[in-house]
Nucleic acid binder design. Structure first.
Lengths: 220, 220
DNA sequence: GGATCGTTCGGGGTTTTTCCCGGATCCGCC
DNA sequence: GGCGGATCCGGGAAAAACCCCGAACGATCC
């Protein structure tokens, strides 16, 4: 019995090339799609055994499409293709229900083999990724739920923003029209809440959490 | 007269698909290569009219290969293919002597047309890129050379990296096995060179210039 | 050999930050 | 009315950061 496949990729050359390769190796390429919405719609109608999903469709909507398809069609397995090395997206795809992962640098032989194994329900992962997924799982299991940010008051946030820009307590006091001792108190309580130790760590925290304005320290 | 083409890409599926597409459209695909060294060597022997060069070979060696080939073989034109949006690499490729640029999301028709025009000596640039190159040229012409980062010594860079992680002078001194006064001196000279005023600004500078290790301030 | 530069160490000073307090007002909530 | 939280102001003290200075050593270049 032939395996039905759907190819999703926004690069026409790649898409058609893969479709032809698979066709020549005995697969039934029922459909192709160039974007996430088309992929979801067509998959719903065609119900292929395997969806070959490119991860970097415009945006990272490949993940979204994977989620929709695996959610709606439990019989359909999604084999994710990626330009390799994009760890975050790949992990997202796995969470979204992808049955396997293959780098785009794979050969035709590897591709054909991977599609066969995916159709058979065999999870396909390149060497590096298995360890990556395991590591991520371990990380999640060990760190239960501490990632919720402590709540800063409005004033503390004001001060933090300015600290992250490199202003001293006196400069911040001038801007906010308060005493520099008050600024220092806000800094102190913020340090306690965030369990940090100095202004540099505060600045890093602000930058990583999008609290900074992204301006250059110098006059520009 | 047929146009001879060489295809350089580290993805076998893509490479062979493109080769086949071009072959079916009347081009003479003389050779393919998967990495920069092979590309240079084979191009030297084959002397194709057009080289289809993938920009993201391992590393950014696509630029290097482009430079070698255009330098050695003035008759051979290099048409660069890229996953799109990688402005820096594309500009590098243009500087390296590429005759044109095409995004990988192009259709087969566009590819065929682009190769024909490249062989005819007609520069091929997608809409966005022409403006990009012009803008870059204008920027270089107007701003002679003031945007170059001041040079920090190796030790200053070491200290900067650790400052950006939120360590105090004493902590840095312990790590580098020097006196904390020496650390403070390095901080001072770095502040002067970069025209900054305190450690928070140093941290921002380090982060924006990729000098930090991207670790969380807290224990994690 | 002399000049320059990077790296190291330190003196001596001011400013800022870090940390612990107490006290005040305002505002919402039980 | 009381209670807690947010905001504000301050004292005091230790640590750290900031700023300028000289000095020594080794390496490199002319």
């Amino acid at each position: 019995m032939t395996i039905s496949v759907m190819v999703v990729d926004d690069h026409p050359i790649w898409r058609d090339g893969v479709a032809r390769d698979l066709g020549e190796h005995g697969f039934d390429v029922r459909a192709t799609a160039a974007d996430a919405d088309a992929a979801i719609r067509i998959a719903r109608a065609v119900r292929p055994d395997v969806v070959l999903m490119d991860l970097n469709l415009d945006g990272s909507s490949g993940v979204r499409a994977t989620q929709s398809i695996t959610g709606e069609l439990p019989e359909t397995r999604v084999l994710v293709l990626s330009a390799s090395g994009e760890h975050d997206d790949v992990l997202e795809a796995v969470k979204a229900g992808a049955s396997g992962y293959l780098v785009k640098s794979a050969s035709v032989t590897e591709l054909v083999d991977a599609v066969r194994r995916t159709a058979a329900g065999d999870p396909v992962f390149t060497a590096g990724l298995a360890g990556l997924v395991l590591g991520e799982y371990r990380r999640m299991a060990s760190a239960p739920a501490d990632d919720q940010a402590p709540r800063l008051t409005e004033r503390e946030t004001d001060v933090l923003r300015l600290v992250a820009k490199g202003l001293t307590a006196r400069q911040i006091a001038d801007r906010l029209v308060i005493s520099h001792r008050t600024v220092e108190n806000h800094v102190q309580s913020t340090l306690r809440k965030l369990q940090l130790h100095n202004r540099v760590e505060l600045a890093r925290y602000a930058i990583e959490h999008g609290l900074d304005d992204g301006e250059d320290p110098d006059g520009g």
